[in-house]
Simulated scan of single mutants.
Amino acid sequence: MLDSSTEIAVNRALWTVVNADFTDAGAHEAWAAEEFTWGLFDNPERRIGALGDVAGLDVIELGCGTAYVSARLARLGARPVGVDLTPAQLDTARRCQEEFDLPFPLIEANAEDVPLPDDSFDLAVSEYGASVWCDPERWVPEAARLLRPGGRLVFLTNSVQVTLCVPEEGGHAGDRLLRPQKGSSRLQWPGGGFEFHPSHGEWIRILRDSGFVVEALHELYASDEARTPEYYDIATAGWAGQWPVEDLWTARLAVTRG
């Protein structure tokens, strides 16, 4: 198995290219969104209620990318800190901070090893950041270290179903299983980066081993009015209206450690 440094280098190089081709151009729109939504089909937080009231909370976003999630949290009254390992993504985030006059700290670091003290945050969040691109055996314990006792972890990742149904060469998921669930926890797509897709049982084990109690698993679908996104086209709106395209987990750290 490759070591973590190799995975980091590959993923950083990938997201430097992705930022230049896609995410930099879409960052302004993502930052300008008036409502907090989750995932490819903009499921509204007001309906899901995964975050709860974040006003006054210290929040760390693990794998923040262009930091639009942190921006939305800041507008809700939180004090976010964004962490990402790709300088190009953070450059885009800083430009958006200036455009929207919404400053908060941004740190270049791997979410598996964050240079911040223990017990610094009330909430840790990841939307398609560390939750997909970092080893959960490393980043989930790191999130636990960073959280204060009783702190919460909320993260969004690909659903198990879509991971098993996306063609290896890319494109939309179909209605057939294309790979076994066993052995799919760590994947590298042709020409892509390293992704991590544990099963539900594996996620529960990892969370429990890190001291978390699972609060909820929200399986996200596309609404009847949703349109298929042009970017990150892993599933059509029709597919995501039948099967969950994303898993949104919420967990709470035990009040006492150990």
Rank of each mutant, 00 (worst) to 15 (best):
C96I: 14
Q97Y: 10
E98G: 14
E99F: 05
F100K: 05
F100R: 08
F104H: 06
F104T: 07
P105Q: 13
P105A: 13
L106D: 02
L106V: 08
L106A: 07
L106Y: 01
I107G: 12
I107L: 15
E108C: 13
A109W: 04
A109S: 15
N110I: 01
N110W: 02
A111I: 04
D113L: 09
D113S: 12
D113N: 14
D113K: 10
P115M: 04
P115C: 06
P115Q: 08
P115E: 07
L116Q: 08
L116N: 04
L116Y: 03
P117C: 09
P117D: 12
D118I: 01
D119N: 11
S120L: 09
S120I: 10
D122I: 11
D122L: 10
L123P: 05
A124K: 15
V125I: 13
S126M: 02
E127D: 15
E127A: 14
Y128G: 10
G129A: 04
G129Q: 04
A130I: 04
A130R: 03
S131N: 08
S131W: 03
V132Q: 02
W133T: 02
W133C: 02
C134K: 06
D135Y: 02
P136C: 07
P136D: 06
R138K: 12
R138Q: 15
W139G: 08
W139T: 15
W139C: 05
V140R: 05
P141T: 10
A143Q: 05
A144C: 07
R145G: 06
R145S: 09
L146D: 02
L147M: 08
R148M: 11
P149A: 04
G151C: 05
G151S: 07
G151W: 00
G151I: 07
L153F: 14
L153N: 01
L153D: 02
L153C: 03
V154F: 00
L156C: 11
N158C: 09
V160L: 12
Q161W: 04
V162Y: 00
T163G: 12
C165Q: 11
C165S: 12
C165R: 14
V166R: 03
V166S: 00
P167E: 05
P167G: 09
E169C: 08
G171Q: 06
G171I: 09
A173R: 01
A173K: 02
D175G: 04
L177H: 10
L178I: 12
R179Y: 02
K182V: 11
K182N: 09
G183C: 13
G183Q: 11
S184G: 14
S184N: 15
S185M: 10
W189R: 15
W189P: 00
P190M: 03
G191D: 00
G191I: 10
G191F: 02
G192V: 03
G192W: 03
G192Q: 15
G193Y: 01
F194D: 00
F194N: 03
E195Y: 00
E195K: 02
E195S: 15
F196M: 06
P198H: 07
P198L: 09
P198V: 09
S199A: 09
H200N: 14
H200M: 08
G201K: 15
E202T: 13
E202P: 06
W203N: 11
I204N: 06
R205H: 14
R205L: 14
R205N: 13
I206A: 06
I206S: 04
I206Q: 09
L207K: 03
L207I: 02
L207F: 03
L207E: 04
R208P: 03
R208M: 11
D209T: 08
S210H: 03
S210P: 07
G211Y: 01
G211D: 07
